[in-house]
């Protein structure tokens, strides 16, 4: 059978499913974020207000989850857009490598920032 019609083997189902699940989670978390940040009685944008909120470990956990899920969803979506184009192997590996690097770097930066509070 021609290899022409076969992109990488290995099921695409888990990443397709995860993309949808993370999309729903992000939607819900983003609404929560807006309510908390802008419409809640305790909303506050001052450094002190943020610092006070960040003392709660649960809130920190939520922020870390937000960063990780957001990065996964965004970068996996970007990869999906690239995959719509037919590319030579070296180019797709390069793009994938860059996306992974960006993911690890931004996750590290985000988590370090959250933990520094």
């Amino acid at each position: 059978m021609s290899s022409k019609y076969y992109g990488s083997r290995g099921s695409g189902a888990p990443s397709w499913y995860l993309q949808r699940v993370t999309g729903v989670v992000l939607f819900v978390v983003a609404i929560g974020h807006y309510i908390l940040m802008h419409y809640h009685i305790d909303s506050g944008h001052t450094y002190d207000a943020v610092l006070a909120r960040m003392q709660n470990p649960l809130y920190k956990m939520l922020q870390i989850t937000f960063v990780v899920i957001g990065l996964y969803h965004g970068l996996s979506g970007t990869w999906n857009v690239f995959r719509d184009y037919k590319m030579p192997g070296w180019l797709s590996w390069t793009i994938l490598g860059l996306l992974y690097t960006a993911g690890v770097a931004f996750a590290g930066l985000g988590i370090a920032t959250i933990l520094s509070f």
Partner: peptide, 11 residues
């Protein structure tokens, strides 16, 4: 159909 150029290119 379960390959990257198979069903998963349908958006």
């Amino acid at each position: 159909v379960d390959t990257q150029d198979g069903i998963w290119r349908c958006h």
